[in-house]
């Protein structure tokens, strides 16, 4: 049965292999070129830490100008790969059989529907995941060579960084693939399945990208009015921020804005200075500023939540696929 599935899936598997070879070759080549550039510009020190010469100056600027687009494209490729797996491997897997009626051939042999389905799933999915993981590791290896000179400097929670690290790409690919198979068995049309999969995956992916960060424990920083909240920013994931009154209760955003505005002028209508304004705030009830955030070091927790949500959805969709196929006539 594995041979049958392999033979049926051969064009896609050859394409996958080609993607792997071309992708790996490109990354290896680009990385070695990039390392040469870093060496020739004498920027090696900037890869691991941010010195003054790394932030401004023509050498770092030259490097960023030359390599940012390439590095971002590498990230985008890994970000897009799960969608492509869903659209080109998941969606046609059963839709094509149902569309051409060839499922009848399989269903009238001794092999059970469950075995037929699982062998097709494994043969289609396993190589795709292997290629995805391989390319993910290669791009990650390339990105580390650029270190803080490259996109990594925007922190683990940046959309491009978060989506290509840890278990997230695999979970997204599983979800896209399962979504493709499910839409495929329901619609029974390859083209419909591919389009719906692409749109649904994109929508869910964007919709959930903001949600996952809120599902892990956050840290809270409180500072007096006028002091800096910078410690909560940087590479961290900002969740919420606002004002607290003297009792430590949250002040609604509208009210806080109104109070802060009111403090800018005295009762007589004279404009207050910055110091006077800051002194006015606690008196009007804006005692402290706070921010909640997920520290960058806890990114792995967010990745786990992300992976379990998408993985869970994938399992549900695969169960749905099996259910529909079992009832298929």
């Amino acid at each position: 049965m594995i041979w049958v599935s392999w033979r049926r899936q051969r064009p896609q598997l050859i394409t996958l292999l080609a993607v792997l070879v071309v992708g790996a070759g490109a990354v290896v080549l680009l990385r070695s070129n990039m390392v040469d550039t870093i060496n020739s510009l004498q920027l090696n020190g900037c890869v691991t830490r941010v010195g003054p010469e790394c932030l401004e100056g023509s050498r770092a600027g030259d490097f960023r100008g030359a390599w940012t687009t390439e590095l971002n494209l590498g990230q985008a490729a890994i970000l897009a790969l799960p969608a492509l797996i869903g659209v080109f491997i998941g969606a046609p897997l059963f839709a094509r059989e149902l569309e051409q009626g060839t499922h009848v051939l399989a269903f009238t042999q001794s092999v059970s529907r469950t075995r037929w389905m699982s062998s097709k799933l494994v043969v289609a999915l396993a190589p795709a995941l292997v290629v995805l993981i391989a390319l993910q590791s290669l791009v990650s290896w390339w990105l580390s060579a650029a270190g803080l000179l490259g996109p990594r400097s925007s922190g683990s929670f940046h959309f491009l960084n978060f989506g290509i690290e840890h278990a997230s790409p695999v979970a997204h690919a599983l979800f896209a693939f399962a979504l493709g198979t499910f839409v495929g068995v329901v619609s029974r049309r390859t083209l419909v399945a591919m389009t719906v999969t692409l749109s649904a995956f994109t929508v869910v992916r964007f919709a959930l990208s903001d949600v996952v960060g809120r599902l892990v424990p956050t840290q809270r920083l409180e500072v007096a009015a006028g002091e800096s909240l910078a410690e909560s920013r940087g590479g961290n994931l900002a969740v919420e921020s606002g004002w607290l009154d003297a009792a430590g209760q949250r002040v609604s955003t509208d009210r806080a804005d109104a109070l802060a505005q009111a403090c800018k002028t005295t009762a007589a209508g004279v404009r207050r200075t910055q110091e006077e304004w800051l002194a006015c705030l606690p008196r009007s009830g804006l005692a402290k500023q706070y921010a909640t955030f997920v520290p960058e070091g806890h990114a792995w927790q967010v990745h786990l939540v992300d992976a379990s949500i998408f993985g869970g959805l994938a399992v549900l969709l695969l169960a749905g696929t099996a259910w529909v196929l079992r009832r298929q006539s």
Partner: peptide, 18 residues
């Protein structure tokens, strides 16, 4: 319903496997 992208020989092998 036959796997049309297979040769007759491959199709025979596929049916035998199933």
């Amino acid at each position: 319903p036959l796997y049309r992208d297979l040769t007759v020989r491959e199709l025979t092998r596929a049916c035998a496997a199933m």
